[in-house]
């Protein structure tokens, strides 16, 4: 039994138009995606804007309606009504720490909100629990009476984490958790996410466009393009042996932190781009979408047309 299994997931958003505003087409935000996650590991979901990575995360926590397909959490179907209680095992951390916390609420109320939804505690118990959570994420227990604007960006993201771990979840969906933060604050939050992962045996679905950070954080990686998977595998598979031209181009585009490699990078990028332009039709179908994934090793899957595999 997989910890989390996403099976042929489709999330389509209708496009309305015409005289009567009927559904005339659909944006296939997620188009037939399957993957599995292991417990206690970090799974990175990578893609550019519009690739559908955030939609998958939101579909798992139930914020987006699933058009087709199934999501199993510890073998249980998330869509089934009798499994509603497992929703509290899955929590989300949002991208923007400035807008994801209600500015009119005190930290106590923000962090206690999920607790109030699922557990009935006395005021005193609740306060004690929130104080413990605050200390857990490295903020002082007195801070619970403050408002979000009194905290820095990194601290706000910690409050978001405190809210997410309040119900002792097993899986956390982290949607671009550090993109809005400064470099040094980024480091703080990433370290801290690794710490609580070990302490609480958490599993992360880490959604990001930043391959540098994904490489640092993740064990497994899935690369998405226009709602489909183009490649998935272990970190080493993706970074040392990328197979799909899109993955190669994405990796080549990462700025190199060593200025001595500047010319090498420039040429490499140009070569990859040339290859991308030449072999585009080998890797994408007539609509410009990726093919189905094929195994090329036990851990490594690439979206290739059938003939390419043999």
């Amino acid at each position: 039994m997989e910890f989390l299994e996403v099976k042929n997931l489709k999330v389509h958003f209708p496009i309305r138009g015409g005289l009567f505003n009927r559904k005339i087409d659909a944006v296939k935000a997620v188009d037939d995606v399957s993957f599995q996650m292991e417990e206690g590991k970090t799974y990175g979901l990578v893609g550019e804007s519009g690739s559908g990575k955030t939609t998958i995360g939101r579909a798992i926590v139930g914020l987006n309606k699933i058009t087709a397909g199934k999501i199993f959490f510890e073998g249980k179907d998330l869509a089934s009504a009798k499994n509603k209680s497992i929703r509290k095992d899955i929590q989300m951390i949002f991208q923007d720490p400035y807008s994801s916390l209600n500015p009119k609420k005190r930290v106590l109320d923000i962090v206690a909100e999920p607790i109030r939804n699922y557990e009935s505690l006395t005021r005193k118990e609740e306060k004690q629990k929130v104080q413990d959570l605050m200390e857990r994420v490295g903020l002082s227990a007195e801070a619970i009476l403050k408002y979000p604007h009194e905290f820095s960006g990194g601290q706000r993201q910690r409050i978001g984490v405190a809210r997410a771990i309040a119900l002792k979840p097993k899986l956390i969906i982290a949607d671009e958790p550090v993109s809005a933060l400064d470099v040094s604050v980024q480091a703080q939050v990433l370290n801290f996410m690794q710490d609580i992962q070990k302490d609480l045996n958490l599993t992360y679905l880490f959604i990001s466009h930043d391959l540098g950070i994904v490489k640092h954080m993740c064990d497994q990686i899935g690369i998405m393009y226009k709602g489909r998977y183009v490649e998935s595998g272990k970190k080493e598979d993706i970074f040392t042996n990328p197979q799909h031209i899109y993955t190669k181009r994405l990796i080549a585009a990462i700025p190199d932190i060593d200025p001595r490699n500047r010319d090498f990078q420039k040429n490499h990028r140009r070569d990859v781009q040339k290859m991308y332009d030449q072999s585009y039709h080998e890797y994408f179908d007539k609509e410009g979408l990726a093919y189905h994934l094929q195994h090329i090793s036990e851990s490594h899957q690439v979206a290739l047309p059938h003939r390419k595999v043999d």
């Binding site: 370290n191 540098g212 640092h216 932190i257 060593d258």
Partner: peptide, 15 residues
């Protein structure tokens, strides 16, 4: 404090 793609580091430096 930046994840460096070349050298392996377990933890990032925090100021």
């Amino acid at each position: 404090s930046v994840p460096n793609s070349k050298q392996k580091q377990d933890r990032l430096h925090v100021i």
